[in-house]
Design a binder for these strands. Structure first.
Lengths: 351, 351
DNA sequence: GCTCCCGATGAAAACGATTGATTTCTTGTC
DNA sequence: GACAAGAAATCAATCGTTTTCATCGGGAGC
C-alpha cells in the first residue's frame, strides 16, 4: 500500500495536495483540512472518507504552506561549538528522541568557537523562523545568553546561561564527584586523591568540590589537593600519578576529572609499580566509550548522561514553545558505571 | 545599524515583509522582489533604492513563502547511522562549509542502525521537501541505495551506494595504505607488518591491499600477513604486537588499520622491549585527534580527510540539485600526518 | 505626427494549507 | 408544513513571495 502510493506519486512526480485529496473525497479543501487536523464540526463519516482519500494518495501536508499560514515551522535549531561532537552528539540524540515524537526536525549548526559564525547561524535560524533554539557546547561553563528575538524560546544544554531567567539544563558536576568518591569509599578505599583539569574550568572546580566534600563527609583526609588541578590530558594524569605514587605511600584510590586523565593516571601508577585496581582503584569521568573500555582494566567512570540532558532540554523547549516555560537551572544527576578499575580485589586479597 | 534593525523588529515583534520594503522604496512588491533577486529589467537607481530600503528594515525573505512558490526549500537532509559521531561530524562540518555559502540549512538525522528509524527519517525529509539528501555512515562499505522519490537527489558520503549510477563520495582506503607504507619505506624501514580490523570489513581489506601492494612494489616481503586481520581494538593491537615482536626479530615498521589498533601495538611493542620509534616505527589510520596526540609518542597517522569528503559530497549535491549530477564514485586522496611515532631516529642512531 | 517597439513598472495570479464567516442541510417542535 | 436551531459543509481571505502578463511612457523610425 505504501509502495502503491509511492508509485502513484512517482508517476506524477509531484506530491499530492490537499485539493486533490478533497476532490477524491468529494469535499472542499477546507473541509478536508478540518477532517485531517481534527478541527471543526464534521460528520464522522466524512472525516473517515477524507482520511481514506489522504491515505490512498499518500498525502503529506506541505510544511511550507502550513508554516506560512500558521507561523510555526515545526523546526528547532541546535547550535553547538563542540567541533568534535564528543558532547553534542549524545545531547543531539537525546533531543531527537524528544522532538521526533512531535514531528519536529532539527537543524544542526556548529559554530566552531567562532562568534561571527555563531551570529550568522543564529540569524539564519531566526530567518527560517525556527520554533525554538537549543544552545549547547563542550563545557558546563556559564555563558552570556545569545541574542535572539524574545519571541523565540531558547534552552541551554550542558552550558548554562548567565541569565537566571533563561532555561538551562545540564548535569551536576559536583554530584558526579561525590558519586565517584562515595563509590571508592564503599569499596574500602581510604586515601583518595583527585587529578583533574585546569582550576579555571567550571567543571574541574565543581568536580573538585564534589571530591573535597565527599572525602570530608566521610572523615577522610584530602590527599594532596595541591596536585589536583592540571590539564585535561593523559600526560598530566601520568605525571600526577607518578608524583602521587612516590609521595603517598598508602594511596589506594584516585578520582580523575576525565577518562583521558584516568588513562594517564593508570599509566603513571603502573610505571611506579602500583597495580590497578589491586593497589589503587581509579574512577574516571565522562564515560567516554573508547577511553573507558578500550583498554584493560576497563574504567569505572561517572556518566554525565548527556542523552538525558538532551532529552530534558528538548522537553523544556517544547513546553516553552507551547507557552509554558520553566525558567532556571535544571540538573541531571550523573550515574556511575562500575567496571574493572574499581573491582573489589584489595579487601578480598587482604582477608 | 544591525542593532537598530534589531530594535525595530523587536518593537513590532514580527519580521518585516517584502510589502513593507516595497512601500518604503515606493515601488510595488513585485518590483521589489525583482530588485532584490536580480531578476528582470530594472533601472539601476530603482534597484539601489529597494536594496537600501531592505537593508534599513533588516528585511530577510520568508523562506516558507519562497519555498512555497519556488518549490525549493533550501534545506538538505543528512542521514547517518554513526551513533558516536566520530565520522559523521567531520563530514557534517565539511558539508556545512559547502552548503552554508548557498544559505542552505542542514537537517541532521541519526538512524542509529535502525532500519525503521531510517525509513521514518527518510519519509520525514521527503515530506519536508528537502532539496537533497546526504547519506553517510561509519564505514566505507557498499550499501543498498535508500528509497526516495527519484526527484530528490542523493549523495552518499563515506559509505558507497551499490548502484553505480548513484553519486558516492568517499576516501581511498587502499591509497591510504600505500601512503602509510611508502612513508615507512622512505624512513628507511624494511620489515613492515600490518595489523588491522576484521577481514570482512571493506576498509580493513582495502587498507590491507594498499599495504600488500606498496610493500611488493618496493621489493620488500609481506611480514606475517596471517597476523593482519583481527579487530578494531587496542587489545588486538597489543596482542598482535607481542607476537610480532617475539617472532620477527628484525621488525622495524608497523602500519595499523586504525589509531586505536596503533595504540595497542605501541603498548605491545613496549611490553616486548621494543622502542617506538627507535626500533619500530608505527603508523595509524584515521588521525583521530585524541588517539593520535593523546600520548607520547604522538602517532603518525593517515588522515582520511573527512572534512573534504563532506565538502565534496555537498558540492556534488548542489550540482545535482541544479540539474547537473555527476554519477559514480568520487575518491578523496587521504594524506599522511607525520608525528613522532615514525621519527627518523634509527638512521641517525645507527650512523 | 504617427506607429512601433522597448524598457520599466505595476497588477494579479499563483503556491498549498488554515480558518473564520457564511451558506446549506438536517432535525425537532409546534 | 412552517420555522428555528444547530450541525455540517463551503467560501473566501490570508500568509509572503515569485512570476507572468499587461500597461505605460518615451524615443526611434517613417
Amino acid at each position: 500500500m505504501s509502495s502503491t502510493a509511492g508509485r502513484l506519486r512517482a508517476a506524477k512526480d509531484t506530491a499530492p495536495t490537499l485539493a486533490e485529496v478533497a476532490r477524491l473525497a468529494k469535499v472542499s479543501p477546507g473541509t478536508a483540512s478540518k477532517a485531517l487536523s481534527g478541527q471543526g464540526k464534521l460528520r464522522a463519516e466524512t472525516r473517515q472518507r477524507v482520511r481514506e482519500a489522504a491515505a490512498a494518495l499518500g498525502f503529506q501536508p506541505n510544511p511550507y504552506a502550513r508554516g506560512l499560514v500558521r507561523g510555526r515551522t515545526f523546526t528547532v535549531g541546535l547550535i553547538t561549538d563542540d567541533r568534535f561532537g564528543r558532547f553534542s552528539i549524545p545531547v543531539l540524540l537525546g533531543a531527537e528522541d524528544a522532538l521526533g515524537a512531535g514531528e519536529m526536525a532539527l537543524i544542526f549548526c556548529d559554530s566552531r568557537d567562532d562568534p561571527i559564525r555563531q551570529r550568522h547561524y543564529v540569524s539564519m535560524l531566526v530567518t527560517r523562523r525556527v520554533d525554538g533554539l537549543i544552545v549547547t557546547g563542550r563545557v558546563t561553563d556559564v555563558r552570556p545568553p545569545i541574542e535572539v528575538p524574545p519571541s523565540i524560546p531558547v534552552v541551554y544544554a550542558v552550558i548554562r546561561s548567565a541569565n537566571e531567567s533563561d532555561i538551562s539544563v545540564t548535569y551536576d558536576d559536583e554530584a558526579g564527584g561525590r558519586v565517584a568518591v562515595d563509590h571508592l569509599i564503599a569499596m574500602g578505599r581510604r586515601r583518595i586523591a583527585h587529578v583533574t583539569g585546569p582550576r579555571h574550568h567550571f567543571a574541574a572546580s565543581a568536580r573538585f568540590r564534589g571530591w573535597e566534600g565527599a572525602v570530608a563527609d566521610a572523615g577522610l583526609p584530602s590527599v594532596r589537593p595541591d596536585l589536583a588541578f592540571g590539564a585535561w590530558s593523559e600526560e598530566w594524569g601520568r605525571q600526577a600519578a607518578v608524583v602521587l605514587a612516590a609521595e603517598v605511600a598508602d594511596l589506594d584510590g584516585v578520582f580523575c576529572g576525565s577518562d583521558q586523565v584516568a588513562r594517564g593516571v593508570i599509566d603513571g601508577l603502573r610505571e611506579a609499580g602500583r597495580r590497578v585496581p589491586h593497589d589503587v582503584a581509579v574512577v574516571g569521568f565522562d564515560n567516554w566509550d573508547v577511553m573507558a573500555t578500550g583498554r584493560r582494566p576497563m574504567l569505572t567512570s561517572v556518566d554525565p548522561d548527556l542523552h538525558s540532558v538532551g532529552r530534558v532540554a528538548a522537553e523544556h523547549l517544547l513546553a516553552a514553545i507551547d507557552g509554558h516555560p520553566r525558567p532556571g537551572l535544571h540538573l541531571i544527576a550523573p550515574r556511575l558505571i562500575v567496571r574493572e578499575s574499581t573491582a573489589a580485589t584489595p579487601p578480598v586479597g587482604r582477608r
